[in-house]
Structure formats: structure tokens, C-alpha cells
Simulated scan of single mutants.
Amino acid sequence: MIDFRFERVELNDPRMKELYALRYQVYCTECGFESPDDHPEGLETDEYDVHSRHFCAMVADTGRIVGTVRIVLAASRGLPRGKLPIEWHCKLDPQKEFAGKRHELAEISRLAISKDFRRREIDKALYAQTEVALIEEHQLNEQRRQFEGVIVAGLYQCIYHESVSLGLTHWYAVMVRGLCCLLRRWGVIWEKVGEQVEYHGQRIPYLANIEENARHAGLLNPRLLEKPVGWKNIDS
């Protein structure tokens, strides 16, 4: 079994280039959400990166980065157009959108997981010269799901602990339904705050109350509230 470590990555850390390269791999090459022509150096970046806290999942024994996510801080000075990406790209329901203080709000975005750990060795099996038994394919798919779940959960732990440290109370996110359903099974509840839009694929805007979700997760999946493996409080 592969072990993973999770850390916050500062903007001046050389590993940021590896994070951007992973995002390019997922968002430009594999999924086509972004045009490679807009990122000629093979690094997917945008104007919100400097207003964000970035996190990574690494293979423990090699340091290879295989997952990343960020939170964009709503109160960051110089935020483009004074809005979070969700506020710019989605039409939010005035009755459901966040109405609190800006320093209590952030948007979760740019979740990216390496293809190797989304699909594990199943891709190699499909193109192998020898026949692969169905039981092997099932086992490989199950292994892929386990790795993907571990990485998503670890990145969530990073976001949660960073948010508590920053005094945040709510998160925005624009997600596909599948990810929202996965998180709901773990006890992370999101409220739909607008209609589906074309934004890196067909996605829906959501809002989550961090304290309420901590209570739900504490009952259904308390592991989500633990500190992720390798976590360091950089600000201490």
C-alpha cells in the first residue's frame, strides 16, 4: 500500500511549479477544461493563485506530488474584480448566497489528482499484450477508488485545518454532482446556491457551513477532522 503525505505549499516554494504542471496535466491535457494554448509552458495558472492557499498530496517515500487543491480567500487584497471565481462565473441565488463577512469566506477550487492514482494500473491492463482476468480488473479498479478516496480525504483535511486556523466559516465550491455526492456520504454537506453552468465542464455552485460540516463529519467520518499525515502549521 502506498502512503501519502499532505502539506501546504507556499507560493515561493519550488514545488508550486509541480502543482501547476499537475493541474495542466489534468485540466488541459486529460479533461480539456482549459486550452493548452493559454498555458504554453505546460503550467496551468490563473490570476487567483496569488490570492490562495495551496495544498498538495505527495507519495511519502518519493515526494512526488500526485494531488493538489487550493482555497481562494475572499478577503485577499487585490482580488480580481473584487470577486471569487464562483461569483464571477455563476449566477448565485440572492436568497442562498453567502451574506457574511468576506474574511470568513473562501472558495475551494482546482482539485486535481494524477491520472496514475485516479485510474491506478487499470490503464496499463487495458493496453497490455496479455489478457487480463476480470477479477484482476475489478481489483485494480477497487485499488484506484481507494487511492483516490485517500487523496481527496487528505486534501479535505488540509482545507479544514487551514480554514479553522484562518477563522473561516463558509466555503464556496463549483463541483460536479459526483464529487458532491461523495463528500455527502462522508458527512460533508453542501447547499446548492445556483443553477448548473459550463465552467470547467458542467458544474453546480455550492455553499458549505464549516462548523455544521464538522459536526456532520464528526458523526459519520471523524477521520476527516484529523490532521492530515505530514501536516505542519507553517504560521506557528
Rank of each mutant, 00 (worst) to 15 (best):
residue 163 S to R: 06
residue 20 Y to K: 03
residue 39 H to P: 13
residue 128 A to S: 12
residue 173 A to S: 08
residue 54 H to W: 08
residue 131 E to P: 01
residue 178 G to H: 13
residue 25 Q to F: 03
residue 10 E to V: 06
residue 67 G to N: 01
residue 194 G to E: 01
residue 129 Q to H: 15
residue 53 R to P: 08
residue 51 H to F: 09
residue 4 F to I: 00
residue 4 F to E: 05
residue 15 R to A: 05
residue 235 D to H: 05
residue 191 E to D: 13
residue 229 V to T: 12
residue 201 G to N: 10
residue 126 L to K: 13
residue 72 V to T: 14
residue 144 R to M: 06
residue 164 V to F: 09
residue 179 L to I: 10
residue 10 E to F: 07
residue 48 Y to T: 00
residue 19 L to P: 06
residue 147 F to G: 00
residue 226 E to L: 08
residue 152 V to G: 03
residue 109 S to H: 10
residue 65 I to N: 11
residue 65 I to W: 10
residue 55 F to Q: 06
residue 94 P to Q: 12
residue 168 L to W: 02
residue 117 F to W: 14
residue 72 V to I: 13
residue 111 L to E: 06
residue 198 E to I: 09
residue 182 L to V: 13
residue 167 G to H: 05
residue 135 I to K: 14
residue 64 R to A: 12
residue 179 L to Q: 06
residue 116 D to H: 10
residue 157 Q to V: 04
residue 112 A to R: 03
residue 228 P to A: 15
residue 1 M to T: 02
residue 186 W to S: 03
residue 76 S to I: 06
residue 26 V to Q: 11
residue 171 W to V: 03
residue 57 A to H: 11
residue 71 I to N: 10
residue 70 R to C: 04
residue 230 G to S: 12
residue 178 G to P: 00
residue 199 Y to W: 14
residue 231 W to L: 09
residue 133 A to F: 15
residue 166 L to C: 11
residue 191 E to W: 11
residue 51 H to G: 02
residue 51 H to Q: 08
residue 22 L to C: 07
residue 218 G to K: 08
residue 194 G to P: 10
residue 83 K to R: 09
residue 172 Y to H: 14
residue 206 Y to I: 00
residue 204 I to Q: 11
residue 102 R to D: 04
residue 56 C to T: 12
residue 45 T to P: 00
residue 91 K to G: 01
residue 184 R to I: 00
residue 217 A to E: 03
residue 32 G to S: 08
residue 210 I to L: 12
residue 231 W to V: 00
residue 47 E to W: 02
residue 181 C to V: 10
residue 9 V to M: 00
residue 220 L to P: 00
residue 6 F to E: 02
residue 12 N to F: 04
residue 42 G to I: 09
residue 134 L to G: 11
residue 35 S to M: 11
residue 86 I to Y: 12
residue 50 V to N: 07
residue 7 E to D: 05
residue 86 I to K: 02
residue 82 G to D: 05
residue 132 V to S: 04
residue 13 D to H: 09
residue 138 H to E: 05
residue 99 A to Q: 13
residue 29 T to V: 14
residue 49 D to C: 12
